[in-house]
Every structure is written in C-alpha cells, then in structure tokens.
C-alpha cells in the first residue's frame, strides 16, 4: 500500500505524467464526443474503433502523399488530418447505411467493419508503408508556463489543440440547434419523433457521420500528433474505451470528457510509472485501462439514464 501511495504521489507531482495522460485522453475525447452524439441518436456504435483505425491509416497515407508532393511537415499533417476525417466518414457511411437504411443489426455491422478495417489497414500498410513524421509542437506563450498542467495542456503538437474548440462545438450542436434536438428525440422516442415529421433513420445516419468525422480526426491525431508513425495495433481497443467513457459519463458531454480524462490517465500509466522507478507488473498495467473501465462503468452505469431507444432499430410500424 505504501508503494501505491508513493507511486500516486510521484505521478501527481510530475509534469511528465500529466503530459502523457493528456495525450492519451485526447484521442478518447475526439472519439467520445462523436460517439456521444451517435448514441444520443440511438446507435451503440462499436465501429468507432474502426473509424479511429481507418482515420489513423488514412491520415498516415495523406501525410505521405503530401510530403512526396513537397509540402512542409505542418502542411502535410493538415492534409493528413483531412484524409483522416474522410476515412472516418467513409467507415461511418458503411455503418450508417447498413444499420439505418438496410436495418441490419448494428452490432453485427460494427463488428464486421472493425475486422474489415483492421485487415484492410494491415494489408495496405504492409503494401504501401506510409512514411510519416510527428507534427511539430507548438508552445502557447504564458499559458504553457502554468505549473504542472501548463505543459500538458498548452505545449503539445498542434493537432491536439483541435480538441479544444471541438468540445464546445459539439455541445452547441447537440443542445442548441434544431438538429441536435431532433437527434436527441430520435434516440429517446423514435415513434414520437417519426410522428412529428422527423426522418428518424436519417438523423441517426447523420449522427453516425458526425461520429465518423470526430473519430477519424482522432485517428489522425493519434498517428500524426501522438505516435508519429502507423502500425496495425496502434488503436488497440481504445475505441471501445471511448464507448465505455460515454456510458461512464452518462451520455452527457461533460461526463464523457471527464471519463475520457480518467481512462486516458489510467492508460498513460503504462508509459509513466516505469520511468518514475515503480516496478509494476506489465500485464497488470496493460490491462489496467480495461479493468478500470469495466469496474467504473459497472459502478456508474446504473446511475444515469441511457437514451431509451439505444441500440434499437427503428422500422416504421414495427415497434
């Protein structure tokens, strides 16, 4: 127990650990935001893992292509991020159209998409082998000098900063626009929404497209802003953790972001505990994010109200 507290103390007093936690959490925030919107519309979208991976690979390809055209690193990263978003949307269109146009089972579709993207990324990666570089760090003056947290929040690669405007934008979209209201109504009571003239499955498809955009962007950030190069196991189940963060956060954006920060922190222990001189079992560390996720979700899932029509297909006249 003493070891645990000294480790916790070391982690809490070290700037590096905040920095690593932030970098892990941001990917989850990117994916978690989109996943929240998709789930509010009624889709438990497990293809978020595939969206991130597709975005990551496509982002790497985009950067490779842009660099070979003679663009600078930052320009190439920007091109890569555009590619990443496009790939996320492509994966989303498969999920959306198969589960909310053809009304195939959304889990079956999502699972098949995940396996397809995993195989496709591995196959294309070994054939094309995109060459990438990490985006440059940008230090925001003054703010980056805040002790402990400053470096983590304001001295990072620039794709990470995209997450700051994204969260309020998602909030505005979900809670302050007509579209957002319709999305939420479609997830709560699709019959009522249908009767009042909302195209239920269309709103659900659009929500999945939004999830594809943010998750694809997250994948682009993962490969270009965090890791710097692509490999097939780069995502490694973090998409599923993002889904858990949505449940943990009770389907509200504030809670989801908190969940992402928590799970990202646990995830970062893999990198931070070793260098700080704490010898923790490596298997335990690698499975810690998943175990913590399961335990916390088991504690908190009961408290919050899931969208009523979550994971239920809508077919007019059948429900």
């Amino acid at each position: 127990m003493g070891g645990f507290f000294s480790a916790a103390g070391d982690v809490l007093s070290n700037e590096v650990s905040y920095d690593a936690a932030m970098r892990f959490a941001v990917l989850l925030v990117f994916a978690g935001i989109g996943e929240t919107i998709a789930e509010r519309a009624g889709t438990l979208n497990i293809s978020v893992e595939g969206m991130i991976l597709g975005g990551a690979f496509s982002g790497a390809m985009g950067m490779d292509i842009a660099m070979s055209q003679g663009l600078g690193v930052s320009g190439a990263v920007a091109v890569g991020l555009v590619f990443a978003v496009a790939a996320g949307v492509a994966v989303a269109s498969a999920q959306a159209n198969m589960s909310h146009r053809l009304t195939a089972n959304q889990f079956v579709v999502g699972l098949a998409i995940n396996i397809l993207v995993l195989g496709m990324a591995a196959f294309l990666n070994s054939n094309l082998q995109p060459v990438t570089r990490a985006a440059p760090s940008v230090k925001i003056p003054l703010l980056a000098d805040i002790p402990l947290l400053g470096g983590a929040l304001f001295d990072q690669t620039w794709p990470l900063y995209l997450v700051y405007p994204l969260v309020p934008m998602a909030w505005w979209l979900l809670y302050r626009t007509r579209w957002g209201l319709e999305v939420r109504s479609v997830g709560e009571n699709p019959q009522a929404a249908d009767v009042s003239g909302i195209d239920v499955n269309r709103r659900r498809r659009e929500a999945i497209y939004v999830a594809g955009m943010t998750s694809g962007l997250g994948g682009g950030y993962l490969v270009l802003g965090q890791v710097g190069s692509f490999e097939g196991s780069i995502v490694g189940g973090q998409g599923f953790i993002a889904i858990a963060a949505v449940i943990f956060g009770g389907w509200t954006l504030r809670g989801v972001v908190a969940g992402c920060l928590l799970f990202g922190t646990v995830n970062s222990f893999r990198l931070t505990l070793g260098p700080l001189g704490h010898d923790v079992n490596s298997e335990l560390l690698s499975s810690a994010p998943f175990l913590v996720t399961i335990v916390t979700v088991a504690i908190f899932a009961h408290r919050s109200q899931a969208p009523k029509a979550l994971a239920r297909p809508f077919i007019r006249g059948l429900n």
């Binding site: 438990l44 189940g237 599923f240 953790i241 889904i243 449940i247 499975s287 998943f290 399961i294 979700v297």
Partner: peptide, 10 residues
C-alpha cells in the same frame, strides 16, 4: 457488448 469486448484484452 462492451464488457465482452473489453475482457478480450484482459
């Protein structure tokens, strides 16, 4: 859906 998936890695 979620727990079975997460338990794979564990």
């Amino acid at each position: 859906v979620l727990t079975t998936l997460l338990l794979v890695t564990v």
